[in-house]
């Protein structure tokens, strides 16, 4: 039994005028500790699939199971990171990071200490009494990471968490997230449209085709690339080979859909 089982997921969106088939027959098994990227053009249903896995959205057909248990609603074992930090501007950094613990009624001194230790690891302990507006974009996304990790989820869902950041901050944060997740032995699912980011961070890359979204191909990242940090991986010779392969596949997909 795999850690996360995605079994024949399909999803349709309805409006008054149209019914859109967003995802069609997606199946995938993910092992514990794996880092998987969902790569694909916009509109391929990656984010929809992530919402289904998070239990925020019920699929039209199919099911998702975490450690054999079917997911029907948000679960404390699953953490979700959004495209932007969405820290609450009226709460201090510390209060923001404790949000998940408060909502799940797990706020005790042990968990609070754990959260403060996480803030310390990210170099954010001295800004814990500041408000989000006083922090830079990179710092804010680091706070959002602490907020997600504070409830000790086993599976992390990352919905393009670096897309709103400038390039330099993004590279630094990729390394930080990569190392943090490896250290805490978390399983992670990253949604992205950045080929380089997918290769640098993940163990496997799932390429989606668009309208309706379905799995086109799964790429395995070589052992040597997996073992090094994202920033180093970007300079590895294996990186450019895989990049070219995925690039070609993506282009073919686009040509096919434009015909």
């Amino acid at each position: 039994m795999a850690f996360l089982e995605i079994d024949q997921i399909s999803h349709d969106y309805f409006t008054k005028e149209t019914a859109t088939n967003a995802i069609k027959g997606v199946s995938l098994n993910i092992d514990e500790g794996e880092f998987i990227s969902f790569l694909g053009p916009s509109g391929c249903g990656k984010t929809t699939l992530l919402s289904i896995i998070a239990g925020l959205l019920a699929p039209t057909t199919g099911k998702v199971a975490l450690k054999g248990k079917k997911i029907t609603e948000p679960d404390t074992q699953i953490g979700y990171m959004l495209q932007q930090d969405y820290l609450f501007p009226w709460k201090t950094i510390e209060e923001n990071t404790l949000l998940g613990l408060r909502l799940t009624k797990q706020l005790n001194s042990d968990n609070k200490e754990y959260t403060l230790a996480l803030l310390d690891q990210m170099g954010l302990l001295d800004v814990k009494d500041s408000y989000p507006s006083q922090l830079s974009g990179g710092m804010r996304q680091r706070v959002a990471l602490v907020r997600t990790l504070a409830t000790k989820p086993e599976l992390l869902l990352l919905d393009e968490p670096f897309s709103a950041l400038d390039y330099q901050t993004k590279l630094k944060l990729e390394d930080l997230v990569f190392e943090t997740l490896k250290n805490h032995k978390k399983t992670a699912l990253l949604v992205t449209h950045d080929i380089g980011e997918a290769i640098a961070m993940s163990d496997r890359i799932v390429l989606f085709s668009t309208r309706p979204g379905k799995i086109q191909r799964v790429f395995d990242v070589s052992e040597s690339l997996r073992s090094i940090k994202p920033f180093q991986a970007r300079n590895d010779s294996d990186f450019s080979i895989l990049f070219q392969t995925i690039w070609k596949e993506l282009n073919e997909l686009e040509n096919k859909s434009s015909q």
């Binding site: 998070a54 948000p74 959004l82 969405y86 949000l99």
Partner: peptide
């Protein structure tokens, strides 16, 4: 998205 943050924590 603020509401989504709360929902992801159940």
């Amino acid at each position: 998205n603020y509401i989504k943050v709360v929902k992801t924590f159940g």
